[in-house]
Write a protein that binds this DNA or RNA. Structure first.
Lengths: 224, 224
DNA sequence: CGATCGTGTGACGGTTGTGTGACAAAAGAG
DNA sequence: CTCTTTTGTCACACAACCGTCACACGATCG
């Protein structure tokens, strides 16, 4: 028996979803607020969570982030908003899927099955990339040097993640401008400056970088 | 580095997807038929697969089922059909997600990230061409001699890559001038000079080169 | 054997690429 | 709102790199 938790403030929609899910053979429970949903999931963990984005008090994004801190349950957003920006934000917050209202129950259950098939493969709470004594946790938004947190700015963090995601590979200034800043054209000096600032924070000897190295004429790369 | 395989018969859509994915930092390869896609995935497994439903010959559903037999790579359907029945069928066949054309690239990449977060992240390692104790990694922008990094300049690196990409074949000075420097006309001495400098760095005995050899009157070649 | 062509190499000035400090605009915190 | 932090721009200095040239040397051929 599969249990589903539905976090949705609109009573009619929540009840309709609960009924439809039970009709399909699920055990379903509802919550009208994020706080209530988080509490229920903590006390009686369900196998799947459906969550609306527009909730009173804590909104859906925040609800997802908090639930993700200590639970790997598949989370599906069910929202009236059909906008790329919302979808991306919800997935980045930790959601696994996003459905636009009104939802077809058959599609919903098919997607829940697909998610459960994937399984809760991940047991490690957060994954970090390691480069010597440098750790970069993309999900935790954190950089550590010899175990100690390093305060990096948002731009520096994105730059570092982009380099880490392509560890060992050269990225040209142009690629970095495009991927980190979204500029299709711009002053490549900008990249230099931020690389320099990053080096001050993450390199033992910023003048002789061991990780964030320059490949003259090619670009930068991050190596282990 | 994350590799994505795009199986889509419409050339324009396939190319657009490949370009957009590369822009976002993925390595992307395409296939126009299900058969070709299955073959590619068997020989060079990608980390994610995008597949269209309407394909000539084997259709998308069958393609998914066959791929699922021996690969649990995350599969995302990208289809023009926005119908619950199709969505359910695709998910039942083994797909992990379903997007309706036209797709927003940002949403697509966010969903790919979400999927990879679920499964174990598979990334393709950096590759290098090997010539005896000489290794040339185009993506890492690096040349190694007996395992040790050799500092080469940008021009030397490009020259070496060009020769390595045509390993064992002679390239005339003119071809090299054109491909490495972009000169359609110019002093061929230039090539000699750079070949010489390169030999100093990568050959044990630069006076008697074993890899970067001269073919008098013809040009140069790189041999294993 | 001598003339000629093709190739290797050292040296040198001009150019380009990169790092950095200073500064102003913009964003964010209080 | 003000103060602080972050971000982007600019100018400049320095080092690395590039292309050119001159010349030496060996191969090739008549």
């Amino acid at each position: 028996m599969t249990a589903v938790l539905v976090i949705e403030d609109d009573d009619r929609i929540r009840l309709a979803l609960l009924l439809a899910l039970e009709e399909e053979g699920y055990t379903a429970q509802g919550a009208a607020t994020a706080e209530e949903g988080l509490r229920q999931q903590r006390e009686h963990p369900a196998d799947n969570v459906l969550v609306d984005l527009m909730l009173p008090g804590l909104d859906g994004y925040e609800c997802i982030r908090r639930m993700r801190r200590d639970d790997d349950v598949p989370i599906v957003v069910v929202s009236a908003r059909d906008d790329t920006h919302d979808i991306v934000a919800a997935l980045e917050a930790g959601a696994d899927d996003y459905l636009v209202k009104p939802v077809a129950v058959k599609e919903l259950t098919a997607r829940l099955r697909a998610l459960r098939r994937r399984g809760r493969a991940r047991t490690t709470p957060v994954t970090a990339q390691v480069f010597g004594d440098l750790e970069i946790s993309e999900e935790a938004g954190e950089v550590r040097k010899a175990g100690r947190p390093v305060p990096v700015t948002r731009t520096e963090f994105r730059l570092l993640c982009e380099l880490a995601d392509h560890a060992g590979r050269v990225l040209s200034r142009q690629q970095l401008l495009s991927r980190v800043w979204g500029y299709e054209t711009g002053d490549e000096r900008l990249v230099d400056v931020h690389v320099g600032r990053l080096r001050q924070k993450i390199e033992d000897d910023p003048a002789n970088p061991r990780h964030l190295v320059t490949l003259r004429g090619l670009g930068y790369k991050l190596q282990r």
